[in-house]
Amino acid sequence: MASRITFIGAGNMATAIIGGLIDSGVAPTNLTATAPNSSELAPIKERLGIHTQTDNSAAVSGADVVVLAVKPQIMRVVCEELKDTIQQTRPLVISIAAGLDAATIDQWLGGNNALVRCMPNTPSLVGCGASGLYANSAVSEAQRTLATQLMEAVGIVEWVEDESLLAAVTAVSGSAPAYFFLMLEAMEEAAVAQGLSADTARRLAIQTALGAATMAQQSDKDPATLKQNVMSPGGTTERAIQHMEEAHLRTIVADAMQACAKRAQEMAQELGSH
Rank of each mutant, 00 (worst) to 15 (best):
R202S: 14
A201Y: 08
T200S: 15
E46G: 12
G272W: 03
A216N: 05
Q143D: 13
K221E: 14
C118G: 05
E185D: 06
N30G: 08
L184N: 01
L92A: 09
N37G: 05
L150D: 04
L133R: 06
I50Y: 10
P233N: 09
E188H: 00
R144G: 06
G235M: 05
H248K: 09
L165D: 11
T15G: 15
A138K: 10
G9H: 08
V66N: 06
S164K: 05
G129S: 00
S164N: 07
K227L: 15
M231T: 15
G127L: 05
A213G: 09
A201F: 10
L100D: 03
P177W: 11
L210K: 04
S124I: 00
D106F: 03
T208R: 11
A171I: 12
P177T: 07
G211Y: 04
E270T: 07
E270D: 12
M215I: 09
R47S: 15
A35L: 06
A191N: 09
A264M: 09
L109C: 13
E161V: 11
A261S: 13
L109N: 07
A213E: 07
D101V: 04
L41E: 11
L41F: 09
A63Y: 01
D64W: 03
Q107L: 12
R203M: 15
P91R: 02
I105K: 10
F7N: 07
P120H: 00
A138Y: 08
S124H: 00
E163T: 01
V230F: 13
G25M: 08
